[in-house]
Design a binder for these strands. Structure first.
Lengths: 151, 151
DNA sequence: TATTGTTATACTCTATAACTATA
DNA sequence: TATAGTTATAGAGTATAACAATA
């Protein structure tokens, strides 16, 4: 019998493998999120950088790269795109000539709100169809996953 | 005052925007997962396709593309990579000459187990550092998120 | 005519390596 | 010598458009 028997391992994996389920689900969600983007929309990473600046205040390329978990050249490109769109400003760091001061502009802050309305529409819609308890579970899980991703 | 006031919107976004937090967290997690891959490892999508075949049994390129939320050409490439690695077989569909029958090989099933051990090591480690309650919350959240991604 | 699958092509995101400037 | 940032280059993943084969 050269063929395998999927059902044998299937029940096992469903029962125990939280890590595997998490991987599959996170990947599908991230693809789905990206595919919901329109032509002129911010990319996922661009949005995350703006949201981080909004939440934590001005920063530097290095700190932003560390926060998002990308390498410095990637952040350079992301910042360049945001700057050319007028959503952030690059200026000299007050004390360290090597560093660059990245700050959200008013247009950038407005873009965050606009993006949240437009771009989160589909996921908002999905979330609204859940029960309050399910949303509470998700909110807890997001906090836990944030630690997992950063740790 | 040309500068914005991040703290004003920050408290608001922390309080209400589950959708935004979910987007940011999912993106960081997916980047982190990808970055944990070694040189010869399966890509995230390749792993997800194998896991789907293991869980649900043989399928077709179209059905796999729909399940993963990618376009057919993307699935063609993914399957080609898996086939050339000997992890799946492509054969004629028994009744419909247009379709292709995709089946997991024994080597593919073994690769799933191997990948879960090696590749999930870092996330398993993180999950083990959580409390049982936190893991239970995550397990519930994964089930909910699966619906969100598919819906 | 509609559907399945593939090929051709291009774009985005990300990474590593090499370079410049400042500490 | 070490760190921050950039530039140059390359690879992986994905998409759209066009095509072939079958229903």
């Amino acid at each position: 019998m050269p063929t395998t028997s999927p059902s044998t391992t299937a029940s096992r994996s469903q029962a125990i493998d939280l890590a595997s389920d998490l991987r599959v689900t996170v990947l599908r969600l991230s693809r789905r999120m990206k595919s919901e983007a329109g032509p002129g929309d911010l990319s996922e990473t661009q949005y995350c950088v703006l949201a981080g600046l909004n939440r934590h205040g001005p920063s530097t390329p290095r700190a932003l790269a560390d926060r998002e978990g990308v390498q410095p050249p990637t952040m350079t490109r992301t910042i360049a795109a945001l700057e050319s769109a007028g959503l952030v400003t690059r200026s000299a760091h007050p004390t360290d000539g090597r560093q660059v001061h990245i700050e959200l502009t008013e247009k950038g802050a407005a873009e965050i709100e606009e993006t949240r309305r437009r771009r989160n529409a589909w996921i908002d819609h999905r979330l609204r169809s859940l029960s309050a308890e399910e949303r509470a579970t998700l909110a807890e899980a997001v906090a836990i996953l944030r630690q997992v991703a950063d740790g």
